[in-house]
Amino acid sequence: MIPGSFDYHRPASLDAAISLLASLGEEARVVAGGHSLIPMMKLRMAVPEHLIDLQDIDDLKGIAINAGTITIGAMTTQAELIASAELESACPIIKETALLIADPQVRNVGTIGGNVANGDPGNDMPALMQALDAQYVLQGSGGSREVSARDFYEAAYFTAIEDGEILTAVRFATPAAGHGYAYFKQKRKIGDYATAAAAVILTIDGGTCSSASIALTNVGDTPLFAQAAGEALIGSSLDQGAVAAAVEAAKAITDPVADGRGPAGFRTHIAGVMVGRAIACAAERAN
């Protein structure tokens, strides 16, 4: 449980980080909170020669809520997400999800940027970002671009991020006032990844579901945006039939691996249960 040898860099600005990343090449890895990368290094499943620690870059921290848009700096910790009353009021599902990540010690150091950029299908924020239709801001020596969370994930640990790019922020439209939301996660214990988890965000207009988006955690080699599941709800009164259709649509896109949490079939089943319960909870919260 001791990593191989590596050089440690701690740039004070984003530009410095980007140029370090450019000059050190593909043997360099950016580290945010380190809660995915460092365990992998300790198991020697990842053996970067250089670690570029982003924690001294103030520009990457903070939560900005204005003009209908929420922007969260990549180095904002889960604990800071949880503590922000403004964020809780504008988009409460962030706090609900962050509280289900690992334990307080991890959340004190783990960041939203690290959580979404690493491409670990077990992480909770990526599915939530898909449900929120977030954009990821990627910056490299050639400038900045944005990629939708729904297009970002290619396979486990493979994402749309290019060599030399750093994910600097996530950005999404503030959900409509009165929206319903829920993040439901089944896990074996505190600190565990999900057996299956589901994020649901919806709005109800005069008894009819006017918008719905659903995404799933840890039941495929990427987070899964369950478009058909959301669509199954839109226009319905969230009646039993519509919910059942959404659950089935969500289950249909899962492809989990068998692991200590159970065989694939069980994890797909749990994904369905989480979706159903999250819809019910979101519907209750919507007004």
Partner: peptide, 11 residues
Amino acid sequence: LMDYYLPTAVE
């Protein structure tokens, strides 16, 4: 300890 079940105060 990812898989081996050591309950925390929560469980």
